[in-house]
Computed example of a mutant assay.
Amino acid sequence: MTDSQPLRVLLVPGWLDSGPGHWQTRWEGRHGDERVLQDDWVWPRRGDWMAQLEQAVLADERPALLAAHSLGCHLVAAWAAHSRHAGRVHGALLVAPPDLDKPDLPPQLQGWRPAVRRPLTCPARLVYSEDDPFCRPEAARRLAADWAVPAQSIGARGHINAESGLGDWDEGRRWLLATARP
C-alpha cells in the first residue's frame, strides 16, 4: 500500500477469460478485485486489449497492481512498453505466460507475435509451472529475464488455472502484494 492512497488490483485474464474456479475469479469474489474486460475473448487483438487495459488503469486515480494470467502477461508487457501511464502500475504478478514462439501456437494468437521483450516498468514476479503445456520452463525463465523480473517455479501445476487446484491461492496473493512499490 502507498502512504497516500490504497492500491487496487486489476485482474488481467488471458485468452478465453478465466472461468469460475480460476484463482483470478476467486480473487475477484474474495477481495473485490477488478477484472479487465475484453470485447473479444476468442480472437484477441493486441491493440484492442491494450486499449482496454489502458482504460482500466485510468478509470481510477488510485495506483494499481496487475494480476495477469497467460496471454494477460504478454498484454501487460506490451502495454507497459507503449503506455504513457505505465507509472500508475506499482507492481505485477505474471502467471503462466504462454510461449508465443511455439510452432503450434493457435491461429487466434498469431497476431501477438513477436512477443514484447523489454524490461517492465514496475516491480513484478513471473510465476511458472514445470509442466505447463503452453510454455516450457526454459521459455518462461527467458521471458522473465527479458522482462527483467524474477522467475518463480511452483512445481508441476499445469497452466496454473482452475485445473491446478490452487483454490484461493493465498501464496500468489502474497507474491502480488509483495511486488508493490512504495
Rank of each mutant, 00 (worst) to 15 (best):
Q108M: 11
P114H: 09
I154C: 12
H85C: 05
W169T: 02
A64I: 00
S164W: 02
L65I: 02
G72D: 10
L37W: 13
G165C: 03
R84S: 14
K102Y: 04
N161H: 09
A145W: 02
V76W: 08
E54H: 01
P97T: 06
D48T: 15
G29L: 14
D48N: 13
M1V: 07
R46W: 06
A180K: 00
V149H: 05
G47M: 02
R46G: 04
M1G: 13
L58K: 11
A64Y: 00
R142Y: 03
L7H: 09
H82P: 00
P150Y: 07
V12K: 03
G29D: 12
S18L: 11
L105P: 00
L120C: 08
D60I: 02
E163Q: 13
A68I: 10
A115K: 03
A139F: 05
I160T: 08
D17F: 04
G87I: 02
H31L: 15
P98V: 04
Q152C: 12
D39F: 04
A78N: 04
H69D: 03
P150I: 08
W147H: 09
G167H: 05
S129M: 06
P13T: 11
C135W: 06
V12F: 04
P119M: 10
A64K: 07
P123R: 14
W43Y: 12
R45S: 13
R45G: 14
A140G: 10
P44E: 03
P123D: 12
S18T: 15
V127M: 05
D17I: 03
P98Y: 04
K102E: 12
V95K: 02
E61G: 14
T121D: 07
M50K: 12
D39S: 14
A56C: 06
L120A: 03
A139G: 00
V42I: 13
A59V: 07
C135I: 07
D17V: 02
Q24M: 11
V9H: 01
D60C: 03
P133Y: 05
D40E: 12
A92H: 02
P103T: 09
A124R: 06
P150W: 08
R8L: 05
H159I: 08
M50F: 01
L53W: 12
G19R: 12
G111A: 13
R35N: 11
A56E: 07
V42Q: 15
G155Y: 06
A145S: 13
F134K: 09
G91T: 01
E34I: 15
L126I: 10
L126N: 11
G19F: 01
N161K: 09
L11V: 10
H85T: 07
I154M: 12
A86L: 01
W79Q: 05
Q38W: 04
L100F: 02
T25K: 11
G172R: 08
G32L: 10
A78I: 06
H82E: 14
L94R: 08
R26H: 06
D40N: 14
V9I: 15
L16S: 12
L58S: 12
P107F: 10
H159W: 08
L100Q: 04
G158P: 01
D33W: 15
V57R: 10
L75W: 04
A86G: 07
V116G: 01
D48R: 15
W169H: 06
P119C: 09
C122D: 00
E28N: 10
S129R: 04
L177A: 13
R157H: 13
G165E: 05
M50Q: 15
A124D: 08
